[in-house]
Design a protein around this nucleic acid. Structure first.
Length: 257
DNA sequence: ATGGTTGCTTAGCAA
């Protein structure tokens, strides 16, 4: 069984102790991290090597930043979209490990509908679809893991009315997500459960976590060749609790490979 | 009621 996790850590520096403790406890084989908020040079790779992981990192100062950790080597690494757009934001890294391709993606949040960041979000999602079209086959095993900043359906939102007009839920965001899914992905969580949620993110503000105001915006999408081998998918909600948690909980999928 | 908290960086931005 190969255990794959995706987790927006909201600063790997602020979360290093918790991340190390979680890796020791959960023992995933492959981990996609988002929001490192750190340069490649400063990335604490030694802490992960000590736990038996190979690291592929695409960082930048202050914001964004993504990484793939794997207990097998990560080869054929691509940082970013490989397209004509001059984009300084480090939001994507792709590589091969355990016989499949895996991408760690930090989709733009988009702030508010109509803003400059919203336009960037929509373009970024179009670019991601084009990146998949240009570089990969949906017939091969591919996992797209990350913070998508989109809740696909209302059942992925605890209080859908409250979030209906947000960048996480509006129809245009969901339509862009559908275009990415239709490249050839299945949502591993929805292969496993039809329950509401399970939610993966709760805002730090407004007492969102104790009030249960969660959204499912972190996903592990899989092409058919690997999705049909998915045996489990779940959220480690406990990781949102306690001292200095990330605002996201890890999402895990297990594959019979 | 447009609030609240966290993190990076140190006043303002992003989420």
């Amino acid at each position: 069984m190969v255990k794959v996790a995706t987790w927006n850590v909201n600063s790997i520096k602020a979360r290093l102790d918790r991340a190390v403790a979680w890796l020791q406890k959960a023992d995933p084989d492959v981990v996609c991290l988002q929001e490192l908020k750190m340069t490649n040079d400063a990335f604490p790779g030694d802490a992960f090597v000590e736990l038996g992981y190979h690291c592929a990192v695409n960082g930048q100062p202050t914001w964004n930043g993504v990484a793939i950790l794997s207990k097998e080597p990560v080869t054929d690494v691509i940082t970013g979209m490989n397209d004509d757009v001059d984009d300084p934001q480090s939001r994507l890294i792709t590589g091969n490990t355990f016989g499949f391709t895996v991408a760690s993606a930090y989709f733009p949040n988009g702030q508010s509908v109509g803003s400059d960041k919203w336009e960037y979000k929509l373009q970024w999602m179009d670019r991601l679809r084009a990146f998949l079209d240009a570089n990969f086959s949906a017939q091969s095993p591919f996992l797209l893991c990350g913070d998508y900043n989109v809740a696909p359906e209302d059942r992925d939102v605890a209080f859908p009315d409250r979030w209906a007009n947000s960048v996480l839920c509006v129809e245009e965001s969901r339509n862009k997500l559908t275009a990415i899914r239709e490249w050839g992905f299945e949502d591993t969580m929805r292969k496993i459960t039809d329950e509401d949620g399970p939610y993966s993110w709760w805002d730090y503000r407004r007492l969102a976590f104790p009030k249960g105001d969660g959204l499912r915006i972190d996903h592990i999408y899989a092409t058919k060749a690997i999705a049909e081998r998915c045996r489990a998918a779940y959220v480690d909600r406990d990781e949102r609790k306690g001292h200095k948690p990330s605002d996201h909980a890890p999402v895990i999928a297990e594959f019979d490979l």
